[in-house]
Design a protein around this nucleic acid. Structure first.
Lengths: 152, 152
DNA sequence: ACCTATGTGGGGAGAAGTGGGGAATTGTGG
DNA sequence: CCACAATTCCCCACTTCTCCCCACATAGGT
């Protein structure tokens, strides 16, 4: 399970060093194979070890693609999914189109989300955090019922 | 399985270089035979390795063509299908009528969709992406029920 | 204070993408 | 049936990208 947040830099060639504390898991569980794709609602990237990715991919492929909504989710998530293997220094090369999608320049933030990571441009993450706090403050309960069941 | 997005250029002769990471599979599985056809819902092209195309073709031919919808899908998909083999440099020549259908000029985007690729004009893809994000953001659940079951 | 592990940056070889010349093939009209 | 035009395909040249390697900088632990 991936937890926690890491600030890191993407170099001029678009490379990103995966924090070393995660490398062992990724190497053993996924043979160092990583899949990067886009998030379909926010301008950030999702980073999966290959084994976890395969699970998701299977589920997405089973969707009936005669439905527009499902087809579009497939287009976005499967369509942007790119295999990025760890190089000899434990880095991955994030493809240019994906960097553009997420507005990634130099400073980036890697956020552990259990089975995957989210990868944000530092500035975008900053704003997103503020927006999320603001939203959570408001007491309204028109939210997904299941959330009300959780005591934090 | 084809994944990921590639920006590429179509040259003045209408040739398109298939990214090298896919060539091996196409050569071994389909002897380098590729079929290009149109998508029946969007202005983009579909690119199949021959073996996958055969499957689809069989399915489409079995459709009861007394139904207008089915007959039109057959007309579009089967009718526009064109075999485009890899040349010695790993490129295919996209026939002019298909390029026109998809509005393909110079800049194009090749989107891996598991068993096939979608080929979009760069600008059209850009717009499509934005529209898809916008749609995914809206929380309504009028969508295909199966999509709600998937946790991304 | 030293050493090791980790993050960061860049040089350079080789692979991959791009573009055009020109021969071979196909198709069309006379 | 032939001549001409258009298209397709092979080949070569050039540019860009990817990946391996090495080097340094920084931080944390001993």
């Amino acid at each position: 399970m991936f937890r926690g947040i890491t600030n890191l830099n993407i170099d001029t060639k678009g490379r990103l060093a995966i924090p070393s504390r995660y490398r062992d898991v990724i190497t053993t569980e996924a043979s160092g194979h990583i899949v990067v794709t886009v998030d379909h609602t926010d301008r950030c990237l999702l980073v999966y070890p290959m084994n976890e990715w395969i699970d998701l991919e299977q589920k997405l492929m089973k969707l009936n693609n005669m439905h527009r909504r499902a087809r579009n989710v497939q287009r976005l998530i499967l369509g942007h999914a790119h295999e990025c293997d760890l190089d000899s220094q434990g880095r991955i090369l994030v493809p240019a189109p994906l960097r553009e999608y997420a507005g990634l320049a130099k400073k980036a933030v890697l956020v552990g989300q259990m089975k995957k990571f989210e990868l944000w441009d530092a500035e975008a993450w900053q704003k997103q955090t503020e927006a999320m706090i603001e939203e959570a403050r408001s007491d309204d309960f028109d939210m997904d019922e299941s959330l009300n069941q959780v005591s934090i």
